[in-house]
Amino acid sequence: MTETFYEVMRRQGISRRSFLKYCSLTAAALGLGPEFAGKIAHAMETKPRIPILWLHGLECTCCSESFIRSAHPLAKDVILSMISLDYDDTIMAAAGTQAEAIIEETIKKYDGNFILAVEGNAPLNQDGMSCIIAGKPFQEQLDHVAKHCKAIISWGSCASYGCVQAAHPNPTKAVPTHKAIKTNKPIIKVPGCPPIAEVMTAVITYILTFEKFPELDRQGRPKMFYSQRIHDKCYRRPHFDAGQFVEKFDDEGARRGYCLYKVGCKGPTTYNACSTIRWNEGTSFPIQAGHGCMAVLKMVSGIKAHGMPD
């Protein structure tokens, strides 16, 4: 029998106490309420571990960088112990042929029962030559693994929408995951450049423990993190409602922390969780640093909207 999550974690040196802390932390992050901490713990103790293959296409690795900086060190350790065992060419120990062999091994062992996480996207022009993994176009690897997986996580704006590589005129014809694969698999999009680390770990935990996707919005993003605008939960919102704005970046209003609407804040039209979860262990986010939201996430879906070839 395959190991359970809990066994894997214990083997990685995580104490039971830490494990329980992690379970309640995750329940809270997912907005599930305290009673779910026990459920998560139970699931982790009894369910066999679901492997994850994490593929990298055209990308800048910011998704991975964000992921390994998940606020709670526990979350990071736990999740990493759950996934790094399989395949993630950036952070795994194995390299070259050895590494590629793991993919085939996982497919053979867990056919139709593992999760495919995609970071970056696949270029289709020039026979996919613009992104070669182990001597073959990334598109082939992606399609191959997608055929055998259970479900797909599209990390970041690249895999979700296309991001910078897919911007007009898109010479390599980089396309997001759902347009690159030929099979019809359930896909959850976790956009952002990069997505927030806690959002990433929470999404993985949810999928692994409940063996299903969290509730998705109409764009295929997890509702619990992408259903509200930055503006809806922004701590500067009282200044917006009061009519107190930063007019110039060095004025009195800027020093007093007024609303950044007039200096171009995109918070009112951006759906993400930055204003609640924040970044870098909850330290700050652009608006808190005195700069408006830049809506990288939205800009990117804007690129998709304008002239992205299907």
């Binding site: 009112p268 939205k298 909207a305």
Partner: peptide
């Protein structure tokens, strides 16, 4: 969604 899923465009 009609406006590219982008609320800014609709604004």
């Amino acid at each position: 969604p009609l406006f590219g899923g982008n609320s800014f465009t609709l604004h």
